[in-house]
Amino acid sequence: MNMESGVDMVAIISRRHLLTKPRLLTFLVMIQMLPQHPLAILGLPWAVPAVMLVPDPFNDQQHIYVFHPLPDSLGEGVFFEADMNSQPVISFAGVGKAFQHDLTRKKAVALHNLTFAVSAGEAFGIIGPNGAGKSTALKILMGFSRADRGVVTVGGQGPGHALGHQMIGYLPENPCLYENLTITDHLRFAARTTGFSGPVAPRIKELLALVGLSGEARLPIRRFSKGMTQRAALAYALFHDPDLLVLDEPMSGLDPLGRQMVVDIIRQCHARGKTILFCSHILTDVERICDRIAIMNRGELQSITTPKELNNYVIAPELPPGTTPLEACFLEIVRDGKPAHRPYPAGEAA
């Protein structure tokens, strides 16, 4: 299992440890008091993954705990306390999702045991080949799709919760806006639904200038090119100046100029302390923007690394010259399952 940096693992617990650790007892007592926890009343809190905010009984502080059951073990799991200096805005704990074919009833696993957390102010990128489960993870985070197992939280709320959504600006993959409406109509709708308190017209003007669509304010979306639609959707996502940006392939369909523009906007947001979670196929963009990069393959999180760690990555000699460390790492993971030349793979400490 991968444990990312920013989260300190405390202990691997089993039933016999429970009585010896007062903090764990507090955790278990608290978990019993959470009515939304499916197994709380059965007294089996350790059977399912959980992310909990627990008040410390000895002082006024609160602790964020993540409990992740180990696969194929009853009552054992990884129990860790999140770093309080960088509270996770997003957390995935043991998330699994499978899609069933309507006719054949055959199941295809889209996500398996996905566990990671994104801290406030962090730029976190997810890369992976097609079908890796990146978009599925983001859809679960947004509450569009439900996880079969595991726990997902956004800003301390469950996915799809209005309070969580209030802080999110979401850009879907291949964004579809209403084609008979203008971008101005969409932004006015955003103003009505996000509780934006400032003057709307100047904000619309500002955003259209930011994404280079000032001249197209009155044009219906059906007349937009793919790149223009992508930029319009980004303006829509940014309208309420969200604290968290969830971007699914934000650079797809953009020309080099448009790509640079979007990269600059994301960087500006990041510099202003916004949390960014995005997935992309374009590895160089991910490398340019992200503080941490997760690599997914076949629904599983293979590794979490940082651009700094990648500097020390030893590129396999058989790879063509000019291959960047991230490309090399990505290719090895996707091709072989695990990178062969990892100097210190993420989560090794776990």
Partner: peptide, 14 residues
Amino acid sequence: ERRTIFTLLCRAIS
């Protein structure tokens, strides 16, 4: 079908 619905549901709309 066209996923325009995400445009609305990504706001704080139940």
